[in-house]
Amino acid sequence: MSESRTVQGAAEFDIDVATAARLRRSLSATADEVIRAVIQEVPSYAGAWAGRMGTTIRRAVRTALGTFLDVVGGTGVLAVGAEAAYELGRGEARDGRTMDALLAAYRVGARVAWRGLSSTAVSAGMPADLLAKFAELVFAYIDELSAASAAGHADELATSGRARERYLEQLGRDLLAGATDELLVAAADRASWKPPDTLTAVLLPSGHAHMTQRLLPEGTLLLAEDAAGLAEPTAVLLVPDATRAHLLRVVGEYRAVVGPVRPWTRVAASFARAVRAHAMRGDGPLDTEERLVELVVGADVEAHADLRARALSPLDSLRPATRRRLEETLRSWLLHQGRRDDVAAELFVHAQTVRYRMSQLRELFGTALDDPRRVLELTLALAVPAD
């Protein structure tokens, strides 16, 4: 690791005891000037000087200047100032200020500190060549402090970012588990996640999840591929206040399943419906709002199979081809409420063919075709064709 430019330069800098003493006596006034200048010239710090953060920054400025004079005088350790600068960077990240704001404060501080220090040095009679060397030391030191603060800022962001990711993932799992409103509000607050009005659950292949998340509204939650409990790697996205048309366009290239919109604390219902619909996917996205009939009649597969078997039992004695034709005709007749011409148009047959088939069906079903309850059973039985 290369030696600090400040330490290296200080070893070659010969300052007399009297000048060093005068610089040290001016330290407090110079620190106050630096603080005032930063308040006036860097907007991000206008309100930062009250309370804990103000105390931290004042201490950091005084420590930085004091450490510099110690190093220049050959009695100090640079690490003291660097450590204070590192902690300052971490504190700035925790308070939500960017590194740009802190670097701007360093630039202002360097200018004002040099003005104060150089004024004292000149009044103490420091020669021009030594003053130039002194300037190099001041700005090398500020550069090193800036680097230390940048490292602290980056480390804090990385640490807090990982923690927040864990909190967001836990929030997502709590949402899918249908946790209580109280627990969900607390989890959202812990993750610094602003609750929307609604959430929509989306299932899609895991390989496309991160790219898709970037195209969706801010605050979209992403859960790992095991959250859906499906055999194939499937990610879960919880999309806040989604516009359905836009959402379907975003996932349009993938075999995604888009659940219904639900209040954000009730997104577990959207997720559960998307999971039930997962097996219905085709080559593109599946909108569960367009497949409600299939979802309803498929909610209990065995019950639907039993209903089909009982309701359509009058067709059991027919040959398979004949049965298929009559089932198709009966389904169309029920959906078109007995309008023969509409049935014929849908099935691409003559109206007389429809009349003939319906005569067969009436012989087989008898009065059942006039009984509202039996008609309902037949409609549900035929709502989803048999595999």
Score class of each variant (00 low, 15 high):
Ser2Gly: 10
Glu3Phe: 02
Arg5Asn: 09
Ala10Asn: 10
Ala10Pro: 12
Glu12Cys: 02
Glu12Pro: 00
Thr19Arg: 07
Ser28Phe: 12
Ala29Glu: 14
Val34Trp: 02
Arg36His: 11
Ala37Ser: 14
Ala37Glu: 15
Val38His: 10
Val38Lys: 03
Ile39Trp: 01
Ala48Tyr: 09
Arg52Gly: 12
Met53Trp: 02
Leu65Cys: 14
Thr75Arg: 13
Leu78Gly: 02
Leu78Trp: 05
Glu87Ser: 05
Glu87Gly: 04
Glu87Asp: 12
Leu88Trp: 03
Glu92His: 14
Asp95Glu: 13
Arg97Trp: 05
Asp100Tyr: 08
Val108Lys: 04
Ala110Gln: 04
Arg111Leu: 04
Ser123Trp: 04
Gly125Asp: 07
Leu130Cys: 03
Glu136Val: 14
Val138Asn: 12
Ile142Leu: 05
Ser146Ala: 15
Gly152Asn: 02
Ser160His: 06
Tyr167Asp: 03
Leu175Met: 10
Ala186Leu: 05
Ala191Arg: 01
Pro195Asp: 03
Leu203Cys: 10
Ser206Tyr: 05
Gly207Tyr: 01
His208Thr: 07
His208Ser: 12
His210Tyr: 00
Gly219Tyr: 00
Ala231Ile: 09
Thr234Ser: 11
Ala235Arg: 02
Val236Ala: 03
Leu238Asp: 03
Pro240Glu: 03
Thr243Met: 06
Val250Arg: 12
Val251Ser: 08
Glu253Ser: 13
Gly259Pro: 08
Arg262Asp: 00
Arg273Asp: 04
Ala277Thr: 05
Ala279Cys: 01
Ala279Thr: 11
Arg291Glu: 11
Val301Ile: 07
Glu302Asp: 12
Ala303Cys: 01
His304Glu: 09
Asp306Leu: 14
Pro314Leu: 07
Leu315Tyr: 06
Asp316Leu: 10
Ser317Tyr: 00
Ser317Asp: 15
Ala321Trp: 08
Arg323Ile: 07
Glu327Asn: 10
Glu327Asp: 09
Glu328Tyr: 00
Leu330Asn: 05
Glu346Thr: 14
Val349Leu: 13
Gln352Thr: 15
Thr353Leu: 11
Thr353Lys: 09
Arg355Trp: 00
Met358Ala: 05
Gln360Tyr: 00
Thr367Met: 08
Ala368Ser: 11
Ala383Tyr: 04
